[in-house]
Simulated scan of single mutants.
Amino acid sequence: MSMDLMVKAMKTKVGNPLRKLVLVKLADNASDQGECWPSYQHIADQCEISRSTVKVHIRELEKTGFLRREFRRNGELNQSNVFHLTLDGGAAAALGGGAAENPPGAVENPGGGAAAAPRTSHSFEPVKEPKPMRTKCAQEGFAQFWKLYPRKVDKAKAEKAWNKLDMTPGLFAEICAALAKQATSLDWLKSGGQFIPHATTWLNGRRWEDETGNSALPPLTRHTGFDQRDYKAGLTARGDGTYDF
């Protein structure tokens, strides 16, 4: 890695923070001649962005003259592109055609490179990173949870609390199992269920991890002792098997 080239890359204004990050990563891998050949996937992993986003910013850097790509093939196989950094203010002529698809894990070259004065781009555009969307599985999971939860209060708040969880199939199964156990506990059944926490409180407090113990109530009945009574006492048996008073 060349500290001189890294400093020039840091001082270069490209008009987009992610594009700047990609340029700095290329400078980090560049040789003394400003050449490097990391794969798109390696750049994406190092910058913590998607591979398609890397390719977009590489093309923009090429359009504005900060680099040019040299496309390489070995027979029918694509090899990693060689990137030539041009941070000296001169326009770079792009070689070849469209971006090639490179296999992940291509070898990168350590070392550094040097260039002259940085060039400034005046193309400023906002960063538009896609917002993560809740999956269909998470939506259906909350619907099932809400159907099972015995105290249906503040559904919207409960759904917000649900969405904050890093939901996985294993966690969903754990929540459902704990809910089934706690719903039959003495604490939840006593006093008409008035001590059942709101679903929002239950989720935010990770109450599915609570210990309930053996506090389940026995099956409830309004009458007891009927199975111990002698219903034939005081009756006279008839010949046909019936009884008379």
Rank of each mutant, 00 (worst) to 15 (best):
M1W: 07
M3Y: 13
L5S: 08
K8S: 12
A9G: 03
K11Y: 06
K11R: 02
K13G: 09
K13C: 07
K13D: 10
V14F: 06
G15H: 02
G15Q: 05
L18W: 07
R19E: 10
R19K: 07
L21I: 06
L21N: 10
L23S: 00
L23Q: 01
V24I: 15
V24Y: 01
A30W: 07
S31A: 08
S39D: 00
Q41A: 15
Q41K: 11
Q41N: 12
A44V: 08
D45C: 11
C47A: 12
I49P: 09
I49T: 13
R51F: 04
T53A: 14
V56M: 05
H57G: 06
I58V: 11
R59S: 10
E60L: 15
K63M: 09
T64D: 10
F66Q: 01
R68N: 11
R72S: 06
R73A: 09
R73N: 15
N74A: 14
E76H: 05
L77E: 10
L77M: 06
F83T: 08
F83I: 03
H84D: 01
L87Q: 05
L87S: 01
G97C: 11
G98E: 12
A100W: 08
A100Y: 15
V107F: 08
N109L: 14
G112E: 11
G112R: 05
G113K: 00
A115E: 01
A116K: 09
A116F: 13
R119G: 15
S121V: 09
F124Y: 14
F124S: 09
F124I: 10
P126E: 01
E129L: 14
P130N: 00
P130I: 11
K131Q: 13
P132N: 03
M133I: 04
K136M: 10
K136V: 15
A138N: 01
G141T: 07
F145I: 05
W146F: 08
K147N: 13
K152F: 10
V153F: 05
K157I: 10
A158G: 12
E159G: 04
K160L: 15
K164V: 09
K164L: 03
L165N: 02
D166T: 13
M167K: 06
G170I: 03
L171F: 02
L171H: 01
F172L: 02
E174V: 10
C176Y: 06
A177H: 08
A178W: 00
L179Q: 03
K181A: 12
K181Y: 10
A183E: 05
T184S: 06
S185Y: 00
W188V: 05
G192C: 02
G193Y: 00
Q194Y: 06
I196V: 13
I196A: 00
T201S: 09
N204F: 12
G205M: 12
R206M: 06
W208T: 04
W208N: 00
W208A: 00
E209A: 07
D210Q: 04
T212L: 02
G213V: 12
A216D: 03
L217A: 08
L220S: 13
L220V: 11
H223Q: 15
H223S: 14
G225Y: 09
D230Q: 09
A233T: 12
L235I: 02
G241M: 01
F245C: 03
F245N: 02
